[in-house]
Amino acid sequence: MLKLQNLSKTYSKGTVKAVDSVNLDIAPGEIFGFLGPYGAGKTTTIKMIVGLLKPDSGRVFINGINVWKNPIEAKSQISYVPDSPEIYDKLKGIEYLNFIADMYEIPKDIRQERMEKYLEIFNLKNAVGDIIGSYSHGMKQKLVLISALLHEPNLFILDEPMVGLDPKSSFQLKEIMRERCDEGKTVFFSTHVLEVAEKLSDRIAIINKGRIIALGTMDELRSHAEERESLEKIFLELTE
């Protein structure tokens, strides 16, 4: 579903390697956790997947489509939730959702049904007639999540999704991520919270200083590390 080949990106005129020859192959139906400390290259990698940052070298394939060669086709398969919800403050919640739905060309009856469903789940139904500028950080985050789910993407990409969410919404989001995988769709998310990655992911990649330093299921990661009890120990050992 998602394939990264030798993906690299340098900043500051080539002096800082943010992402260094990253290779990943993620199958449909997988929840993939992308783990790493701050500044490890998680967001840079994700931005290269969704088309926000052009890689210096390497390729990104979504469902076999090269993101940087056929951006429109590739982008209609994915949706992206950034780490901070910067959206149009002057639109009303419902106007924003309709705008996003128009961009993905979702028919009226289908979008209506999905909006009902997700607004209910994330408890945003009463605020959707208000201007986004009046929302709290968490509400904006939830609105971005809903807008990202409207077109039922084959690949759902989230950058630090649990930050700023209340416990209930965070629980609901995890449920939704699970459901999507049961339907054969793929979820790719980054986090620095080990617990989230450990509980949720089918497979995990740990990135540090731009390189993938560990990749596999929880069990596989355990077998590689010397300290084998928890992801925390493995993580600390590897990123030292």
Partner: peptide, 27 residues
């Protein structure tokens, strides 16, 4: 310092508010 909301939240009926239009019109 806050942005005013309508005060009490209006009950919003999604079926009344979901409209679809062509992408360029929507932009």
């Amino acid at each position: 310092l806050e942005v005013a909301t309508t005060g009490k939240h209006k009950k919003v009926k999604i079926e009344d508010l979901s409209r679809s239009s062509l992408p360029f019109l929507s932009i």
